[in-house]
Protein backbone atom coordinates (compact mmCIF):
# COMPACT_ATOMS: atom_id res chain seq x y z
CA UNK A 1 0.00 0.00 0.00
CA UNK A 2 1.49 3.34 -1.04
CA UNK A 3 1.38 5.97 1.62
CA UNK A 4 -0.98 8.89 1.44
CA UNK A 5 1.72 11.45 1.99
CA UNK A 6 2.83 10.88 -1.59
CA UNK A 7 -0.54 11.93 -3.02
CA UNK A 8 -1.37 15.51 -3.97
CA UNK A 9 -4.80 16.93 -3.04
CA UNK A 10 -5.82 16.54 -6.67
CA UNK A 11 -4.94 12.84 -6.61
CA UNK A 12 -6.86 12.42 -3.36
CA UNK A 13 -9.85 14.08 -5.06
CA UNK A 14 -9.65 11.58 -7.93
CA UNK A 15 -9.33 8.64 -5.52
CA UNK A 16 -12.45 9.84 -3.70
CA UNK A 17 -14.51 10.49 -6.83
CA UNK A 18 -13.53 7.04 -8.09
CA UNK A 19 -14.73 5.50 -4.81
CA UNK A 20 -17.92 7.57 -4.89
CA UNK A 21 -18.73 6.14 -8.32
CA UNK A 22 -17.97 2.62 -7.12
CA UNK A 23 -20.38 3.07 -4.19
CA UNK A 24 -23.07 4.48 -6.45
CA UNK A 25 -22.86 1.38 -8.64
CA UNK A 26 -23.37 -0.77 -5.57
CA UNK A 27 -26.40 1.34 -4.59
CA UNK A 28 -24.61 2.50 -1.44
CA UNK A 29 -26.09 5.99 -1.42
CA UNK A 30 -24.77 7.19 1.92
CA UNK A 31 -21.21 6.11 1.12
CA UNK A 32 -21.54 7.73 -2.31
CA UNK A 33 -22.41 11.06 -0.70
CA UNK A 34 -19.67 10.82 1.92
CA UNK A 35 -16.97 10.16 -0.67
CA UNK A 36 -18.33 13.09 -2.68
CA UNK A 37 -17.99 15.31 0.39
CA UNK A 38 -14.34 14.28 0.65
CA UNK A 39 -13.83 14.80 -3.07
CA UNK A 40 -15.16 18.34 -2.78
CA UNK A 41 -12.79 19.13 0.07
CA UNK A 42 -9.76 17.92 -1.88
CA UNK A 43 -10.84 19.57 -5.13
CA UNK A 44 -11.19 22.86 -3.31
CA UNK A 45 -7.66 22.45 -1.98
CA UNK A 46 -6.08 21.44 -5.29
CA UNK A 47 -2.95 23.42 -6.03
CA UNK A 48 -3.66 26.47 -8.11
CA UNK A 49 -2.14 25.73 -11.45
CA UNK A 50 0.45 28.18 -12.71
CA UNK A 51 -0.41 27.31 -16.31
CA UNK A 52 -2.62 29.73 -18.15
CA UNK A 53 -2.84 28.39 -21.68
CA UNK A 54 -4.11 25.15 -23.09
CA UNK A 55 -1.09 24.83 -25.37
CA UNK A 56 1.00 24.06 -22.24
CA UNK A 57 -0.96 20.83 -22.04
CA UNK A 58 0.50 19.38 -25.23
CA UNK A 59 3.96 18.90 -23.71
CA UNK A 60 2.56 17.14 -20.63
CA UNK A 61 0.46 14.86 -22.81
CA UNK A 62 3.46 13.96 -24.94
CA UNK A 63 5.40 12.84 -21.86
CA UNK A 64 2.48 10.59 -20.88
CA UNK A 65 2.30 9.06 -24.36
CA UNK A 66 6.07 8.59 -24.75
CA UNK A 67 6.98 7.50 -21.23
CA UNK A 68 4.40 7.25 -18.48
CA UNK A 69 1.90 5.02 -20.28
CA UNK A 70 4.72 2.90 -21.69
CA UNK A 71 6.21 2.18 -18.24
CA UNK A 72 2.80 1.30 -16.82
CA UNK A 73 2.00 -0.98 -19.74
CA UNK A 74 5.29 -2.84 -19.45
CA UNK A 75 4.77 -3.50 -15.75
CA UNK A 76 1.13 -4.46 -16.21
CA UNK A 77 1.92 -6.98 -18.93
CA UNK A 78 4.84 -8.45 -16.95
CA UNK A 79 2.43 -8.99 -14.08
CA UNK A 80 -0.43 -10.21 -16.25
CA UNK A 81 -2.65 -7.42 -14.90
CA UNK A 82 -5.45 -7.39 -17.45
CA UNK A 83 -7.60 -4.81 -15.68
CA UNK A 84 -4.79 -2.28 -15.72
CA UNK A 85 -3.92 -3.06 -19.34
CA UNK A 86 -7.52 -2.46 -20.38
CA UNK A 87 -7.64 0.88 -18.55
CA UNK A 88 -4.28 1.90 -20.04
CA UNK A 89 -5.30 1.02 -23.60
CA UNK A 90 -8.37 3.22 -23.37
CA UNK A 91 -6.53 5.89 -21.39
CA UNK A 92 -3.85 6.15 -24.05
CA UNK A 93 -6.42 6.46 -26.84
CA UNK A 94 -8.30 9.16 -24.95
CA UNK A 95 -5.01 10.99 -24.31
CA UNK A 96 -4.27 10.90 -28.07
CA UNK A 97 -7.73 12.40 -28.64
CA UNK A 98 -6.80 15.22 -26.24
CA UNK A 99 -3.69 15.80 -28.30
CA UNK A 100 -5.58 16.01 -31.58
CA UNK A 101 -8.21 18.31 -30.07
CA UNK A 102 -5.42 20.62 -28.96
CA UNK A 103 -3.94 20.59 -32.45
CA UNK A 104 -7.33 21.54 -33.90
CA UNK A 105 -7.76 24.22 -31.27
CA UNK A 106 -4.32 25.66 -32.09
CA UNK A 107 -5.44 26.04 -35.72
CA UNK A 108 -9.07 27.07 -35.27
CA UNK A 109 -9.08 28.82 -31.89
CA UNK A 110 -12.51 30.14 -30.97
CA UNK A 111 -13.93 28.72 -34.23
CA UNK A 112 -13.40 25.18 -32.90
CA UNK A 113 -17.02 24.77 -31.93
CA UNK A 114 -18.67 26.63 -34.79
CA UNK A 115 -20.10 23.43 -36.22
CA UNK A 116 -20.73 21.31 -33.17
CA UNK A 117 -20.71 20.89 -29.42
CA UNK A 118 -18.42 18.95 -27.14
CA UNK A 119 -19.66 15.59 -25.88
CA UNK A 120 -17.84 13.48 -23.33
CA UNK A 121 -18.15 9.75 -22.74
CA UNK A 122 -18.57 9.36 -18.99
CA UNK A 123 -17.28 5.80 -19.16
CA UNK A 124 -13.82 6.33 -20.70
CA UNK A 125 -13.39 10.09 -21.12
CA UNK A 126 -13.53 10.20 -24.93
CA UNK A 127 -14.39 13.67 -26.25
CA UNK A 128 -16.24 14.28 -29.52
CA UNK A 129 -17.09 17.47 -31.38
CA UNK A 130 -20.45 16.75 -32.92
CA UNK A 131 -23.76 18.37 -33.84
CA UNK A 132 -25.65 15.59 -32.03
CA UNK A 133 -25.05 13.02 -29.29
CA UNK A 134 -22.72 10.30 -30.65
CA UNK A 135 -24.52 6.96 -31.06
CA UNK A 136 -21.65 4.98 -29.62
CA UNK A 137 -18.25 5.68 -28.09
CA UNK A 138 -15.61 4.71 -30.67
CA UNK A 139 -13.13 3.86 -27.90
CA UNK A 140 -15.03 1.91 -25.25
CA UNK A 141 -18.27 1.20 -27.20
CA UNK A 142 -20.51 2.75 -24.54
CA UNK A 143 -23.98 3.70 -25.88
CA UNK A 144 -25.31 7.23 -26.48
CA UNK A 145 -26.78 7.35 -22.96
CA UNK A 146 -23.28 7.51 -21.46
CA UNK A 147 -22.47 10.77 -23.28
CA UNK A 148 -22.96 14.18 -21.73
CA UNK A 149 -22.88 17.49 -23.53
CA UNK A 150 -20.34 19.95 -22.18
CA UNK A 151 -21.91 23.38 -21.75
Amino acid sequence: MTSLSSHSPGALAAICSNLAKACEKQYRTEEFQLFNTLEQYFSKHMEQSVGKHLDELTGLIQVDLNETFVTCEQLASEQGDRGTLRALTWGKKVTSIHKSLLTRYAKQGEKLLDNGDLYICEACGFIAISSETPAMCPICKAPASRFSKVQ
Binding site: S8, G10, A13, Q48, S49, G51, L57, I61, C72
Partner: peptide, 11 residues
Protein backbone atom coordinates in the same frame (compact mmCIF):
# COMPACT_ATOMS: atom_id res chain seq x y z
CA UNK B 1 0.34 8.61 -14.21
CA UNK B 2 -2.36 9.64 -11.73
CA UNK B 3 -0.38 12.70 -10.63
CA UNK B 4 0.34 13.58 -14.24
CA UNK B 5 -3.35 13.45 -15.15
CA UNK B 6 -4.29 15.42 -12.06
CA UNK B 7 -1.84 18.21 -12.90
CA UNK B 8 -3.34 18.33 -16.41
CA UNK B 9 -6.81 18.53 -14.87
CA UNK B 10 -5.66 21.44 -12.71
CA UNK B 11 -4.24 23.29 -15.70
Amino acid sequence: LLESKVSQEQL
